[in-house]
């Protein structure tokens, strides 16, 4: 065998001591795992506790108790005037995530098709390297790129130099951020397919694309959906980069209505807005602990957490159905 076998092999007979160490180590490793489990549960517990504080009178609360209705069905976020509607943030998050998935989903899957089916070997290496680098760039760096380069570019191009913060810039930045995830998971999906499928299709006279479109993509479909859902989970939680380019305006729904000098599309793409994550980054530092305002923000955090949990459970469900 050509593999080198680690040296320094103890040839001492098994001593009771080593057996004790053996058992002790097993417990230690189990404890590490339990620490991890405990972290998850305290995370859920603390978030639920602080989030619930917005709706239930808890000791330490300094403000009135809000109703679920006024918070989760409210369109007006004016905490200083005691109005706590969070729908603008939920809509904002869904819009940004929806836009970026609409771009990143197809692009990511197609890139994976390219890398696994079409690219020559050297190009495959280049793409891997590029994806590694894209995923490694920190979100604040994407943010400053958006702020210093993308926003001026978009503004010059479509708004005669006016500020262009909003959904489009956020979605573009987010697309570049989540595409590597989707590409690498989709590549796994295609690489898991037996080669015989492609061969079978090609032997019947398929072109490369016919084989991809009518055999490979349908065969990989469940895993491709999983890849996109996981990308979506990442997109929902992204905060800093979007916060820097979205404009941070909780009143975006009414502003969008009022910007009548623009076409509806431009209004939609370029109205400064807010999302769940950007709102947390923006306002959490300014609020007093246990005030209603502060509690609602924690409730938003809880919602965010439940959304990502939901995306994970969804992917599990999808992969179970496959099996």
């Amino acid at each position: 065998m050509s593999r080198s076998f680690p040296k320094s092999f103890s040839s001492r007979p098994r001593l009771p001591l080593s057996l004790w160490a053996d058992r002790g180590a097993g417990t230690l490793f189990l404890i590490s795992t339990l620490v991890l489990v405990a972290l998850i549960f305290s995370l859920i517990g603390f978030l639920a506790w602080r989030g619930a504080g917005a709706f239930i009178a808890l000791p330490g609360n300094t403000d009135r108790v809000l109703s679920l209705r006024e918070v989760f069905l409210g369109l007006d976020w004016s905490p200083t005037q005691d109005r706590f509607g969070v729908l603008p943030f939920i809509f904002g998050s869904f819009t940004v995530v929806g836009l970026s998935i609409a771009l990143a989903g197809p692009l990511g899957v197609l890139t994976a098709v390219f890398v696994t089916q079409i690219a020559p070997r050297w190009m495959r290496a280049v793409m891997r390297q590029a994806m590694d680098l894209l995923v490694g760039i920190p979100s604040v760096v994407y943010g400053i790129f958006g702020l210093a380069t993308l926003l001026p570019f978009l503004g010059d191009r479509w708004l005669d130099g006016q500020p262009s913060a909003g959904f489009l810039a956020s979605a573009l930045i987010l697309t570049v951020m989540i595409v590597p995830t989707i590409v690498s998971l989709s590549m796994d999906a295609f690489e898991a397919l037996p080669r015989s499928l492609d061969e079978g299709a090609r032997a019947l006279g398929s072109t490369t694309w016919q084989s991809i479109a009518s055999v490979l993509i349908p065969a990989a479909w469940p895993r491709l959906v999983t890849a996109v859902v996981l990308g979506m989970g990442r997109a929902i939680g992204e905060a800093m980069a979007i916060q820097m380019v979205i404009g941070n305006n909780p009143q975006w729904i009414s502003l969008m209505r009022d910007l009548t000098d623009r076409t509806p599309l431009l209004r939609f793409l370029f109205t400064p807005a807010s999302t769940l994550t950007t709102e947390l980054v923006q306002e959490l530092p300014n609020t007093a602990a246990h005030s209603a305002w502060n509690n609602v923000l924690f409730a938003l955090g809880l919602l965010l957490y439940l959304l990502t949990m939901g995306s994970i459970l969804l992917t599990r469900r999808l992969s179970r159905r496959r099996a």
Binding site: L36, I40, F46, R50, G233, T277, G301, L304, T308, I312
Partner: peptide, 27 residues
């Protein structure tokens, strides 16, 4: 279940971890 926990923790948005850190460590 352990695996689900690992998966969940690694998918937790960093802003949510930030809230947790703020609540637990800072406050």
């Amino acid at each position: 279940f352990f695996r689900l926990c690992v998966e969940t923790l690694s998918a937790t948005p960093s802003i949510v971890l930030a809230l947790f850190g703020l609540m637990v460590f800072v406050q």
